[in-house]
């Protein structure tokens, strides 16, 4: 995973709430077995059916920050939604509230999801709509979002912040403690289900 420290870029206002992961990337794109190349599926229905959709507006071309309404990323657990946003060029999504699974996926894959209070997100939406060239800075070191005259702190736990700043992947971190897993396994209940019989039979 790439390290994330500070990102500055222009932003797209997505004034919709409850943007579910079926909208971020429809199921038909989930048939692929690769990890990259999902940008064509991002918001596919909205991009193809709505000429005025924000990603179809030239003035927002090249934006790397997505600003959305509350409850972004609800529904399916598909991490492809995060990959599609990254592949399209987004580094950060800002919303008043994210669905848990989407947020977990994003912070593991290196897409920074930032929560700000709804009225501040509203102001940011207005400002970037008025002036699409507005430069928005997301500073993970200081846990701040900054744009023309505005500075707002956001919350992110120290551990996740450290992991993102260092670009560390979770599996490597877990495997630093193999003895804890070995020890736990010795105490598991003997009746817990196992596929070992099935495995031996095949």
């Amino acid at each position: 995973m790439e390290k994330f420290t500070v990102h500055t870029g222009t932003a797209v206002p997505l004034r919709r709430s409850n943007v579910d992961t079926d909208q971020i990337i429809p199921a038909v794109y989930l048939k692929r077995v690769t990890r990259t190349g999902f940008e064509d599926g991002l918001f596919h229905a909205w991009r193809s059916n709505e000429p005025d959709f924000v990603l179809n507006q030239q003035r927002f071309n090249g934006a790397s920050v997505l600003v959305a309404g509350p409850d972004f990323g609800t529904g399916s657990s598909r991490e492809h939604a995060v990959w599609a946003l990254l592949d399209y060029g987004f580094k950060v999504v800002i919303s008043p509230r994210f669905a848990d699974i989407f947020r977990g996926n994003s912070l593991k894959a290196g897409l920074l999801t930032v929560m700000l209070p709804e009225k501040i997100v509203q102001r940011l939406l207005d400002d970037i709509s008025d002036d699409p060239s507005t430069q928005v800075t997301i500073d993970l070191t200081e846990r701040q979002v900054r744009w023309t005259g505005e500075v707002h702190e956001f919350e992110l736990d120290d551990y996740t912040r450290w992991r993102l700043l260092e670009g560390l992947d979770d599996i490597g971190l877990t495997l630093r403690h193999p003895e804890s897993i070995d020890e736990y396994e010795l105490g598991r209940k003997p009746w817990l289900p196992s596929l070992s019989d099935t495995l031996n039979a095949t």
């Binding site: 657990s77 991490e79 492809h80 848990d100 977990g104 996926n105 894959a109 599996i171 877990t174 495997l175």
Partner: peptide, 21 residues
Amino acid sequence: GIGTSQVEHVLATQTLPMDRP
């Protein structure tokens, strides 16, 4: 439910790092 990064994590370690909800 978990995402694909976590699927890989569980395959590799049979564990998941999680903050308690």
